[in-house]
Simulated assay, not measured.
Amino acid sequence: MAPALVESLPVREPAEKKKINEGFNKEFFIGGSNAYDDSTETKGTATQPPATYPNYLPVWDNEKGVKYPPWTPFEHYEHGKDADPSFQDLLPENKAQVTEVTPYIGSEVHGVQLSELTDAGKDQLALFVAQRKIVAFRDQDFAKLPIDKALEFGGYFGRHHIHPTSGAPKGFPEIHLVHRGADDKSGLDFLEQHTNSITWHSDVTYEAQPPGTTFLYLLDGPTSGGDTLFVNMAKAYERLSPEFQKRLHGLKAVHSGFEQAQSALARDSTVRRDPVQHEHPIVRTHPVTGEKALYVNPQFTRYIVGYKKEESDFLLKFLFDHIALSQDLQTRVKWAPGTVVVWDNRVTAHSALYDWNDGQRRHLARITPQAERPYETPFAA
């Protein structure tokens, strides 16, 4: 059973609360900001067409100045536990074409329309994604759904998360948008001072109940570039020696959302909910597969509880480097029209890439169902 929920923790040191984390600068460098020209997006430019889905253009005033209260605990039901492992409702033999992208992570599926899945098919989707970690569906119709219908589909997998700082479609704060508008080349300024745009993370791990099965779908994207990297965090744990695995068990780390809020305020953007930080185990267990996975990331994980700063920094750096360098445990999603990527945030980390500089629009929408509080099961050699 998962332990009881813990409310937000005190910040370790006032100086740390004020520090803007480099990862957040990169996150919004990749995703864009609220400084875009609406007429440019709806009408296009001399070199770029209008946004294909103007109903998905971001706004930051859905709340009209009202701040959301803190999240309250909820009982998450994991539908993957009910799934038929034959996947006959999700991947019928006469319809679905499935390609395994790499041995350890990633599958690509053609011939399945997600919005037409039965509940049995949705249960199997949760299990299949937990097993393969990330699955790219080539579904030309999902982005065309009315937004409320897309949210209805995603809500089967958990309570909708509302991002504290990102833009969302008008009237639908539950949708998190990744948007860089037409002719926006500001990323080049960032790369004048940085060598890369990589920011490994699992989404909003500072929440008490972070996401599980998650959906991201393309609305507009560059002809090439703007791919997303994913890594199998369960296999990353498995690669460690048994003695090292044993040492990690029982350790907890603090994941903080304060830096993200401060970064948003520095850009004169929105903070919809007071930031929080929470302790999570460094090794968490998946509730369906039983796999143990590393659960730290450089964007949100701040320090290991009970360790001195130098000790915590040393161990976290090793784990961050291990995750980043394990390219044999990674896959790369190339976004194409109709792509819907489904992944399990509990056992993966990911990073967007900025590698296009011709001003093409990059516009994606994320549905982010929350899951259970991360928990750890005993070490077994």
Rank of each mutant, 00 (worst) to 15 (best):
A293F: 02
L316D: 02
S33Q: 01
L9N: 02
D82A: 13
Y104L: 15
P146D: 03
P374T: 08
K308L: 11
V276C: 09
P69V: 09
A261Y: 11
T348H: 05
V340T: 10
A126K: 05
D203I: 03
Q262N: 14
D274E: 15
F29K: 08
T214G: 07
H176A: 11
N357Y: 08
T72K: 12
M1Y: 07
E93I: 07
L5V: 10
T223L: 12
F379H: 11
L229Q: 09
F172K: 10
Y56T: 00
N34G: 13
H280Y: 06
R366T: 08
F157L: 06
D355S: 06
T331D: 10
F142V: 01
G167M: 05
S326A: 13
Q124E: 11
S256K: 11
S224R: 12
Q260Y: 06
H160F: 09
F29L: 14
T213Y: 01
R366V: 04
T348C: 08
W60Y: 15
L117Q: 01
G306Y: 07
G187M: 07
G221V: 08
V204G: 00
P146Q: 05
P164G: 10
I30K: 09
F137P: 06
L57N: 03
H161P: 01
V59Y: 06
T228E: 02
S269Y: 04
L177V: 12
V288Y: 02
V283G: 02
V341S: 04
A365S: 08
N232S: 12
F87R: 03
V129F: 05
P374G: 07
D203Y: 10
I304D: 00
K317R: 15
L57C: 05
F137R: 02
V204Q: 11
V271I: 08
Q299F: 03
S351V: 03
T165G: 03
Q277W: 00
Q131N: 06
A380W: 01
S8C: 12
W356R: 15
K144Q: 13
R159K: 15
E291P: 01
R180N: 07
D123M: 04
N297H: 02
F157S: 11
P14K: 15
T199K: 11
F300L: 10
A136Y: 05
L315H: 05
D328N: 14
L9E: 11
H286D: 07
H76L: 11
T102V: 06
G338P: 00
D141N: 11
R284I: 11
H179S: 05
R302Q: 12
L265A: 15
P3E: 11
P49L: 14
S241A: 15
L91E: 01
L251M: 13
T228F: 08
N357V: 05
A236L: 07
T213H: 06
D355Y: 02
G158K: 11
A120D: 04
Q113W: 03
S224L: 10
R273L: 14
M1D: 06
H79C: 10
Y206T: 01
I134M: 15
R12Y: 09
E93M: 10
Q299H: 04
L364Y: 08
Y77K: 15
P50F: 08
T368K: 02
N297F: 05
E372W: 00
V6Q: 15
P378F: 04
Y375C: 05
I304P: 00
R361L: 07
T118A: 04
G257N: 09
P73D: 13
R346G: 00
A236C: 14
K309T: 12
E75P: 01
E259L: 06
S197T: 14
P378S: 15
F379R: 04
T72H: 09
R272T: 03
N196Q: 10
R239C: 09
G158D: 04
